[in-house]
């Protein structure tokens, strides 16, 4: 479904990604792991068309998307829930959700909002509240809900567990598993290694802007040497 081939990019003169290769098949949860500053979020910005590539190709559902605008990429169904949520603090919860559907089919909007409320009861309670007044966990729910409103075929989740209490982290991973169970393909970018490996089918470990290890999540989980070398566990 998603194929990333030899992607190189960075900011200004600084190269961050030095030829990244990665694939995601339909229905998979694929984890991209690695510590801070290895280029995980840069990869996401490149995938969403925010950061232009220096070289390499990105193909999504059989079409090149690396020259496309962020809006076209969202329309194609590659949707990102960014690190730090990036919700609209000055808009109400419901307005945030509506804007998730900005490029979508307006006639289905009401039904989609109702779907999100069915998944996240808390958001329904707070629908008229400004998003900036929500707690961290609620903001993360809203960010995911807003992503769902774009009718994603592949959802990129960038650090969804960041800044959440252990209990909420648990809840977040349960939710990700449930979304995948409903047929959504997920690219999970995380620092939370063990829990990511538990729900992912495959994983990539990024170091210094390169994929250093890739494999089935189960194998990575059990390989003590790998865990020590790259994941600091």
């Amino acid at each position: 479904m998603l194929e990333v081939r030899n992607v190189r990019t960075g900011y200004g003169e600084t190269e961050i990604l030095r030829g990244v290769n990665l694939t995601v098949a339909e229905g998979e949860i694929v984890a991209v792991l690695g510590s801070n500053g290895v280029g995980k979020s840069t990869l996401n910005m490149a995938l969403s068309g925010i950061l232009p590539l220096w070289s390499g190709e990105i193909e999504f559902t059989g079409h090149r998307i690396d020259q496309r605008s962020p809006a076209e990429i969202v329309e194609a169904g590659l949707v990102q829930v960014p690190e730090g949520r990036k919700i609209f603090p000055n808009l109400t919860v419901e307005e945030n959700l509506e804007l998730g559907n900005y490029r979508g089919d307006r006639s289905r909007r009401k039904a989609m909002v109702a779907d999100v409320y069915a998944t996240f009861g808390r958001l329904k309670e707070r629908r008229r509240q400004y998003a900036g007044t929500l707690s961290g966990g609620e903001q993360q729910m809203l960010a995911i809900g807003r992503g769902m409103m774009s009718a994603p075929r592949l959802l990129i989740l960038d650090e969804p567990s960041l800044g959440l209490s252990p209990l909420l982290v648990e809840e977040m991973f349960t939710l990700i598993g449930r979304l995948a169970g409903e047929g959504l393909t997920i690219l999970l970018v995380e620092q939370n290694v063990m829990q990511s490996l538990e729900i992912a089918s495959r994983a990539y470990i990024l170091e210094n802007g390169e994929v250093v290890v890739e494999g089935a999540a189960r194998d990575l989980r059990e390989d003590a040497r790998l865990r020590q070398a790259y994941l600091g566990l």
Partner: peptide, 23 residues
């Protein structure tokens, strides 16, 4: 209106706006 909501969204959160497909 959608355009109006997008205007308010861009005012406070440009990256978030681009990621939902707002030009």
């Amino acid at each position: 209106t959608d355009v109006g909501k997008a205007i308010r969204a861009v005012a406070k959160e440009k990256l978030g706006a681009r990621l939902v497909g707002i030009d």
